[in-house]
Write a protein that binds this DNA or RNA. Structure first.
Lengths: 338, 338
DNA sequence: ACAAAAGATGAAATCGTTTACAACAGATTT
DNA sequence: AAATCTGTTGTAAACGATTTCATCTTTTGT
């Protein structure tokens, strides 16, 4: 049969028309006559022709794919976001390339490389730890920040992190906690900062004071949550409730304190952030702040596609709502019960 | 400065050489004279030239990327595998495209589409639920099966699932369990079948018998694990230990029974499969069978790249070792202790 | 019935590379 | 001194599509 895959030339020959007509039949069928359209389509079927996207892309000066640049690909937080992105990119005939920023030695150089390589029509950047100037490159494609963001006025999609943190604190205060601690993300990260400031605002709104020895530095990982728990255990005067800036840290924290014989929520209340899938199945199920990850992925892709279609480097920013998910890891403090 | 990005023509003009020489300087520097090489490189620097990969790919009849086809992109199990793949593909100048198979209506059609679209130089398929003939397409690129597999002699990478299951059962039997149950994956899945057969072989090796009412159908998800737990709770004559075919199901199962007041491991021992990150932080930490996901990703990419370089549709298969990870979710049964 | 508009098609240029081939210089062999 | 070889470079033809422009029919309007 066909040694090689058929080209548009083959189709044209079989259909008895020019390559221009074949191309038109496939891209804007309305402009070709009905009879020729049928001839072309049956020739396509006969030859098994598939459009060569590389050639098409070259001629049309595009690449047919977008890149999702993630801090760390191994982080399962992003898988659902990728799924959301994929669900809008696939119908738009765009491929989804993935790569991570924190893998090599120089993240900014890696970003610059992707921006200039011309491998993608657009880029979704999930890493906010770049210097603002890192995007000042001639001829770069549109970039959308997602989840994290950085200085400048880049279009972005994110949740209201401060508000989420405030909701967490509010709930803890409402059930009677006066001694509330916090486990933060890594220093310098925007999510760390906004969630911390939301935490503090929540405290002051409830007439509480932040205590420096009650905020524990972490890095969003489970291990860092466990490490924070060990510092909490070593305290003489412990907070009775904790807001962790990520579910992963909450998991690590809760596991470590339970291991030490502390009961959650009887002895300690914990609230997480993200609502990753697993936390609903923990014992106790974790109370947390939900980030709608699928929605974030979908909207990120949609916003980026809009920018690509408009040929614009700028675009709107969007913030999607977080949601408080009450479960079983929060209870009134002992004092309030006793 | 530069309105558009510089092309090889621009570099050639600036360096005072032909485009052929520029191309050679960049691809095989050894064949051009030292002096011209310098001239070209400085012209490259001056113009800020970046090779246009689309044009290059078209000419070289390749695409510069590979696709990872995953059953469900939202499944975090794969994120670490992707990270492993990325770490070998990036240095090889190959992009990593991701897509899922179970999202649309017809997974096989979707697979065929990817195979014929010419969007990738190779494909790693993580979904074994395809009919063996689904790959009989003319001119398709090399395909490597990973984790799952299907009939035929496709090159593949996977773990020894049966052996892993057998290790789990052996450990449970060794600590004294005689009543061991199993939560399976979805019907028809190769992992379901091999892990089930390993489970059964483990039982018979220890002189135990499989009981039909002690194997619970699941689908690898946490929810299905919780559902299985509810069936287990309804039993009059319960097994004292359970081997779950995935960590996710083990998490769901454990959460549900704990919620019902059952203590793990005192009342019930549980072993999982996969060793996903979170299980080390559960209470109790989950005993499980480790699949080296990063290694799987790395080797998958390496094997595929070998096939691509060799231009061959066939290649070796590899099975990587599983590892038994003892933690805290297994204890001798009550009878053996009392 | 004639001009003008509309509709359908094809010829050929173009996108930006890579590479087979030819050409040429200088060095080496006979 | 002619012939051969080696090393370096340029010319030009691909790769496979899309799209501008021109051409040739048909309709339509007056």
């Amino acid at each position: 049969m066909d040694r090689k895959t058929a080209t548009i030339q083959d189709v044209a020959r079989v259909a008895g028309v020019s390559t221009a007509t074949v191309s038109r039949t496939l891209s804007k069928p309305s402009v070709v006559a009905e009879s020729t359209r049928e001839a072309v389509l049956s020739a396509v079927a006969e030859t098994g022709y598939r459009i060569n996207s590389t050639a098409s892309n070259l001629r049309r000066q595009r690449t047919g794919s977008v890149i999702a640049l993630i801090p760390n690909l191994a982080n399962p937080f992003f898988s659902q976001i990728l799924a959301g992105m994929s669900s809008v990119l696939a119908p738009a005939q765009l491929g989804l390339l993935v790569a991570d920023t924190q893998t090599g030695t120089d993240p900014e150089a890696r970003l610059a490389d992707f921006l200039q390589s011309g491998q993608a029509d657009g880029l979704v950047l999930f890493d906010g730890t770049m210097s603002p100037g890192a995007l000042d490159l001639p001829g770069r494609p549109p970039v959308l920040m997602a989840c994290e963001w950085m200085g400048g006025d880049l279009p972005s999609i994110r949740v209201d992190n401060a508000r989420g943190a405030e909701m967490a604190v509010a709930h803890l205060a409402d059930v009677g906690h006066r001694a509330i601690g916090h486990v933060t993300g890594p220093p310098g990260n925007v999510l760390t900062e906004t969630r911390l400031s939301g935490f503090q605002r929540g405290l002051t709104r409830h007439g509480l004071q932040a205590r420096a020895d009650w905020v524990f530095g972490g890095d969003f990982s489970m291990d860092s949550g466990a490490a924070a728990a060990r510092r909490w255990l070593a305290l003489d005067d412990r907070p009775t409730a904790l807001f962790c800036a990520s579910d992963e840290m909450a998991i690590g924290f809760m596991g470590a304190v339970q291991h030490a014989g502390i009961r959650v929520p009887e002895d300690l209340s914990i609230v997480g952030f993200d609502n990753i899938d697993v936390v609903a199945h923990l014992t106790p199920a974790l109370t947390t702040i939900r980030q709608p990850r699928t929605v974030i992925g979908v909207r990120a892709a949609e916003l980026l596609v809009d920018m690509i279609d408009a040929g614009s480097l700028t675009g709107p920013s969007e913030v999607v709502e977080v949601e408080f998910i009450p479960r079983k890891s929060v209870a009134p403090p002992r004092a309030a019960r006793g």
